[in-house]
């Protein structure tokens, strides 16, 4: 049914995935000051970030749980595309493959991806502001935005896909004179909407 719309959505989802993963990579790379690009190193490196930050930062470890939560949820939700982020040359292809594997389950990821990117930025901000006490309120919304993402995921996966799509309504003038409105035919008779560009 929504072949074109679905394809656009997949592209958007793939782009958002890649953006979120790149954000995460940059944030972790800044924290660790090391060229850790593979997700295994990221996930494994999160505890070291946790270990580093309390020693260097006088603030209570409010920033580190956000970073750990971001990395943890990211590794949970995005495992198939995350494994391919090490090869930065073609992350979107693998992400598109991963999201394209199931057309129904690729609708839920965007909130997670956005949540991850949000928490990434906020945790990055918190990580950079470890010395200042303003870093403490920042992770709070990140942790809050992190929690609904896993719960909303199965709900969206289990919702049945749309069977039919309501046709976008229009009112257009005709070269014969009168205007035609698509919705006026609703309940009366079927309509054949023909976009054409040449003779046929």
């Amino acid at each position: 049914m929504g072949a074109v719309f679905g394809r656009k959505n997949r592209v958007l989802i793939a782009i958002s995935f890649v953006a979120a993963l790149l954000l995460l990579t940059v944030a972790c790379g800044d924290n660790l000051s090391g060229p850790s690009l593979t997700s295994g190193q990221q996930v494994g490196a999160a505890p070291s970030a946790e270990a580093e930050q309390p020693s260097s930062a006088p603030t209570p470890g409010a920033a580190t749980p956000a970073a750990v939560a971001a990395v943890g949820s990211e590794s949970k939700s995005n495992t198939p595309p995350a494994t391919a982020t090490g090869a930065e040359s073609k992350p979107d292809a693998s992400a598109a493959q991963a999201t394209g594997a199931d057309s129904k389950s690729d609708t839920p990821p965007p909130p997670i991806a956005t949540a991850v990117s949000k928490s990434d930025t906020s945790s990055a901000v918190a990580a950079t502001e470890t010395a200042t006490p303003t870093g403490t309120p920042v992770p709070a919304p990140a942790a809050v935005s992190e929690t609904p993402a896993p719960t909303s995921l199965p709900v969206l996966v289990n919702t049945p896909g749309p069977v039919a799509m309501l046709a976008p309504d229009f009112t257009l003038p005709s070269i014969q004179g009168p205007e035609y409105t698509l919705s006026e035919y609703r309940g009366k008779q079927p309509v054949l909407v023909v976009f054409y560009r040449a003779y046929w």
């Binding site: 698509l182 609703r186 309509v191 976009f195």
Partner: peptide, 19 residues
């Protein structure tokens, strides 16, 4: 627009299309 046909049923939903 590409040459395409949308068949819209009485309920106003796209029942079939060819793009």
């Amino acid at each position: 627009a590409s040459a395409s046909v949308f068949l819209i049923d009485k309920q106003g939903e796209i029942a079939w299309k060819s793009i």
